[in-house]
Design a binder for these strands. Structure first.
Lengths: 342, 342
DNA sequence: CTGAAAGCGCTTACAG
DNA sequence: CTGAAAGCGCTTACAG
């Protein structure tokens, strides 16, 4: 099976009556090409349906036309959203997106970053989504000579976009407090082991600050660790119900944790908001369905925004530029799982 | 920022004391290389941490080391699962995966398949996930000179893996019938407009056949079209409740449709299984949570299986080979939304 | 079994 | 503003 014969830069040069080199420059919008030459080249290229060979371009030192997205997993709702949004931005800018899932496994993460020098030659940039990097890995990435951007990462020497996690948690907790609850528990995300993702820490901090604003302190018994999943939330809630004591309101670190909590409640013949108010963070589509009060965060927007920052760097490689952090707004969505304490 | 200096095939040749050409052959496990040469090359390559430049290999006519996954969308639960499973297989075989989402837009699909000749030079193979292709597109793909495999597609000249949709629907419907229900409605997926995805048609057929097995026929009023989403299911169920009449049991074309139906029920002060039994297809993680009876289908397995078939073709390109279709088993999971009619 | 040579299709200095 | 030449790092016939 022969592959379809494709036009080469040579064909464009012949048809336009110019040299390969001028064609190359014209096609890449480089300076020092006359308007008439530019026009002829564009015309010839269009007629031939010419597309540069990315392999040849890459080998000769040009761009690869690909951007890698590295995510802790590709299946979680948050990441699927962010990945698709970024992919759209990349595709519209003419880039292929190479998807790399760490599959929530440290061993895979280790392998990916060990082989970074191999990846570097295959892509022009890397978009990191909430990847918990060690300082060594951060250094590796930032010296790889690629454009880099990320979503939801901290203290990192490249552009990042995320939300203010402390504030989001503060909003959620304050909502509970404003409803008259003073007996609060938190189902808290696992502290990260790396150094570039501090989401759980920040959210806990927001919880504590909201309490402090009401002259309340965090009760150790009312801090239960749950990995951010339905099952994790269910387990944490079970623990709270059976081994500790039920507070009147709960802040769940994310919506999926809240779903699990709701489930555990039901298994014990309890329900929300009757027996306990619950608020999460995310605004997962199922939250609407389940009537979960939550803090909305724009997920696709974060992916798209970071992707656009990356494209900007790629297009203005030499523009001097300090790493920036962009925080998108979150918003309380009151539904049915929170109500006034009585 | 200079990219890290990488070892080339030249370096390996010098260190091993052999020619570039022998190194190339040894590295690719081609015949006509002595054991001792193979050994020396392996050693030198390991010492240098050598990795072939995929750009150079590709340009010279070798493989690209990439495989494209094309999916209708990357955000739906089903596709996120299948994509991650396939990505794992590809990564373990040393391939990058290029993710292409059609974003559920015909215009994007058109663009992707128009530009197929450009994509062809960037990847060694294509994995299609439930992509509803026109005959022209099928022809385009199958003559592209690439390895191709798919999930959930029909009448297609390459390997496919899926489930028996007619049987799955039959299982679901028979479950309802076995519980004594004879007054059934179906929330049916939209008929596809292309020619290579017949999931909705097959599922409707299974529904009809199960009824026929009990000497029952499909009542037109009890066939409601719903696109496979929560919102679609909700709308369809609303239609059923307000403009038609409520049957005693419902087969929803997929779990997300069933979720929407459950929601509509609740909005009307009704509930399942009290007022109506509901069964879906998928075994979405939320189904467990909501107690939805459903037909389980292995999703990650389908993605992984198809990915492996693709890798096989890539590794044995000349093995004569008829396109095969592999059907994985489905299984009824009884939970709380279905019960005996009274 | 092994190697010298040509070439894949671009880009990058370097002259003009 | 334009072009001839070299070279990116591989693979593929073709000799030996």
């Amino acid at each position: 099976m022969a592959r379809a014969q494709r036009a080469t830069i040579q064909d464009v040069a012949v048809l336009s009556g110019l040299s390969i080199c001028t064609v190359s420059r014209a096609l890449r919008n480089l300076p020092n090409v006359s308007e008439s030459a530019r026009h002829k080249v564009a015309e010839a290229a269009a007629k031939l349906g010419y597309k540069a060979s990315s392999a040849a371009a890459r080998l000769a030192g040009g761009s690869t036309g690909s951007i890698a997205i590295i995510a802790p997993t590709a299946t979680a709702w948050f990441f699927a959203q962010a990945v698709e949004a970024a992919e759209e931005v990349f595709a519209d800018s003419g880039y292929d997106t190479v998807l790399i899932s760490l599959r929530n496994k440290p061993s895979v993460q280790r392998r990916v970053f060990n082989d970074l020098s191999a990846l570097v030659q295959r892509v022009d940039g890397i978009l990191l989504l909430n990847v918990d990097l060690s300082p060594a890995e951060v250094a590796l990435v930032s010296t790889a000579g690629l454009a880099v951007a990320s979503v939801g990462m901290d203290a990192v020497p490249w552009d990042d976009v995320g939300i203010n996690n402390e504030n989001a948690a503060w909003q959620a907790t304050s909502h509970l407090l404003d409803l008259g609850h003073w007996d609060l528990a938190i189902l808290s995300g696992k502290e990260s082991t790396g150094h570039s993702v501090s989401t759980p820490t920040d959210r806990f901090r927001g919880f504590r600050r909201a309490l402090a604003d009401h002259f309340l302190v965090v009760h150790p018994d009312h801090v239960v660790t749950a990995d951010s999943s339905i099952e994790g939330g269910r387990r944490a809630m079970m623990e709270l119900i059976t081994h500790r004591n039920l507070p009147s309101a709960i802040f769940a670190d994310c919506d999926e944790t809240a779903f699990g909590a709701l489930m555990a409640l039901r298994e014990h013949g309890l329900s929300s908001p009757k027996d306990v108010s619950i608020v999460g963070i995310d605004d997962h589509p199922m939250s609407w369905f389940l009537g979960l009060s939550t803090i909305y965060q724009p997920v696709a927007d974060q992916g798209a925004f970071a992707a656009n920052l990356l494209i900007d760097r790629l297009q203005n490689p030499d523009a001097a530029h300090e790493p920036t952090q962009h925080l998108l707004n979150t918003k309380l969505i009151e539904r049915k799982t929170t109500r006034r304490k009585r």
